[in-house]
Amino acid sequence: MDITIYHNARCGTSRNTLALIRNTGIEPTVIDYLTNPPSHALLKAMIAAAGLTVRGAIRRKEAAYAELGLDNAALGDDALIDAMLAHPILIERPFVVTTQGVRLCRPSELVLDILPLPQLAAFSKEDGEAVIDASGQRIAR
């Protein structure tokens, strides 16, 4: 099964998403996007495939967002993507690509919508929130 996660190991949401992928028995391709960002064309395609706008895929809470003046509404998508690639910390995370689709997995449970295999065991997030029950089923919220 071909699954790729654009991952930041320092991010709890990214770690939870990776753990949910692995809970299917699949070992995904893990790309540390901070050191190996996608190309301009690939990032643009992932954002579109996930049904997002470019502004919806940028981390507004990062200091670089304000420092670079990225809140300027006159900036177009290509300029924003260029800024995201020059400063990969600005790319919202984690993006996951599977044969079932592309998602920005915030919250991490969104990955469940595009995983080709079911969950194999119970799963709780790092904060203790139960997401998958002992039979591998998603816990309703």
Results as ranks from 00 to 15, higher is better:
residue 16 N to M: 06
residue 24 T to G: 08
residue 56 G to W: 00
residue 1 M to I: 07
residue 92 E to C: 14
residue 113 D to K: 01
residue 79 A to Q: 15
residue 115 L to M: 07
residue 135 S to T: 13
residue 140 A to T: 11
residue 46 M to R: 15
residue 79 A to D: 15
residue 118 P to R: 01
residue 131 V to S: 00
residue 21 I to L: 07
residue 110 L to T: 07
residue 47 I to P: 05
residue 47 I to H: 05
residue 70 L to C: 01
residue 106 R to L: 03
residue 134 A to R: 05
residue 40 H to F: 15
residue 5 I to M: 10
residue 104 L to S: 03
residue 69 G to D: 01
residue 51 G to H: 06
residue 67 E to H: 12
residue 73 A to P: 15
residue 100 Q to Y: 10
residue 51 G to R: 07
residue 79 A to M: 09
residue 130 A to R: 06
residue 5 I to N: 09
residue 139 I to K: 02
residue 134 A to L: 03
residue 61 K to I: 11
residue 111 V to S: 02
residue 123 F to V: 00
residue 1 M to P: 04
residue 66 A to W: 06
residue 35 T to E: 14
residue 88 P to K: 12
residue 77 D to W: 09
residue 83 A to V: 10
residue 99 T to E: 15
residue 62 E to P: 00
residue 134 A to C: 02
residue 97 V to E: 11
residue 112 L to Y: 02
residue 69 G to V: 05
residue 139 I to G: 05
residue 96 V to K: 11
residue 81 I to W: 07
residue 17 T to W: 03
residue 87 H to I: 13
residue 59 R to K: 05
residue 63 A to K: 14
residue 112 L to K: 03
residue 61 K to E: 15
residue 130 A to Q: 08
residue 110 L to V: 08
residue 125 K to L: 10
residue 81 I to E: 10
residue 61 K to T: 15
residue 35 T to Y: 14
residue 107 P to H: 02
residue 130 A to K: 05
residue 28 P to K: 00
residue 117 L to R: 10
residue 23 N to Y: 07
residue 47 I to A: 03
residue 34 L to F: 09
residue 17 T to F: 03
residue 31 I to H: 09
residue 28 P to A: 01
residue 140 A to L: 11
residue 15 R to L: 02
residue 28 P to W: 01
residue 110 L to E: 14
residue 98 T to L: 06
residue 52 L to H: 05
residue 85 L to M: 05
residue 26 I to C: 05
residue 58 I to V: 13
